[in-house]
């Protein structure tokens, strides 16, 4: 793993990637500081951090788009498969390198509250809590971007899907107001999702029986649940949508509540997408 990590770090820091990513991140945070801390003279650093956090929706997919897609396009993935290292080590090494690229500008950002503290009253715990949450949220988004990059050999496609997925996640709270909150609406949506999942299983495993079995079992479960406790389905859709938002949980912390469930949620998302990335790489070995 350390070989992959070192190799990736070298490639990021010997090229412009790490610097351009860092520059855009610092620019976004800097604009936030300018607006809140300098112009409006607000002493809460966390608001500055939250102000332009949507920029992650653009810069994270651009950072992660090549991480696995490029290996596939250049056929260097064959090398990785034939080396005496596991796919998990490859994915972990690459992920840690991405985290390092993300962490460097954040270390610069971490100096801001201390600088501001010299000129005013900055409440440091919330500032650093927010920086930590910002790091975790970015780490979760990087894991998502990495997974999307593992699905394709086109960097552009990986970036495009990544940006739309993160934007969808960013707006999911406001979008949740427009989706049906009735129990029946939730039921229909769940059924559609199950069918989509079945199609995905069929596409990935080429096993019709398994896809059909899983689909029918899940549909039956959903049907039973709807029959037994229809009240649970009431407003389920908007609730789930706002719960899934990575950004909403970050705002909770920005607002001064260091919510441990948010940390757990971020870690879960990271592990989930890293796991999927490994599976996606392994799947190519099994065709």
């Amino acid at each position: 793993m350390s070989a992959v990590l070192r190799h990736e770090l070298k490639s990021y820091f010997h090229s412009l990637t790490a610097y351009v990513f860092g520059a855009f991140l610092l620019l976004a945070v800097g604009l936030g500081c300018l607006r809140y801390n300098l112009r409006a003279a607000v002493s809460n650093f966390e608001f500055a951090l939250a102000d332009f956090c949507v920029v992650l929706a653009i810069i994270v997919p651009i950072l992660t788009m090549r991480v696995l897609a490029e290996e596939r396009r250049q056929r260097t993935d064959q090398l990785l498969y034939s080396l005496p290292i596991t796919t998990t080590q490859v994915v972990a090494g690459k992920y840690l390198a991405l985290l390092a690229v993300y962490l460097v500008p954040l270390c610069v950002v971490a100096a801001y509250p201390l600088i501001f503290a010299r000129y005013g009253d900055v409440y440091l715990p919330t500032a650093y809590g927010a920086i930590l949450a910002f790091f975790l949220m970015g780490a979760a988004l990087i894991a998502l971007g990495m997974f999307l990059s593992s699905l394709t050999e086109s960097q552009g496609f990986a970036a495009g899907i990544g940006i739309s997925a993160i934007l969808l996640n960013y707006f999911s709270v406001s979008l949740s107001e427009y989706v049906s909150s009735t129990a029946f609406g939730a039921l229909v949506t769940i059924c559609v999702l199950i069918l989509a999942l079945g199609a995905l299983i069929r596409h990935l495993t080429k096993n019709e029986n398994m896809a059909l079995g899983a689909g029918i079992a899940l549909l039956a479960l959903t049907g039973a649940a709807y029959y037994l406790a229809p009240a649970k389905f009431e407003g389920l859709l908007p609730r789930v949508m706002s719960r899934l938002s990575l950004f909403e949980r970050f705002y909770t912390i920005v607002n001064g509540v260091f919510d441990m469930t948010a940390v757990v949620y971020y870690l879960t998302v990271i592990i989930f997408f890293l796991f999927l990335s490994v599976q996606s790489m392994e799947k190519r070995r099994y065709n």
Partner: peptide, 13 residues
């Protein structure tokens, strides 16, 4: 084993 696939898996840059 050492393996050279059909297309040499090189990092071009």
């Amino acid at each position: 084993m050492g393996y050279l696939p059909e297309q040499p898996p090189l990092y071009l840059n």
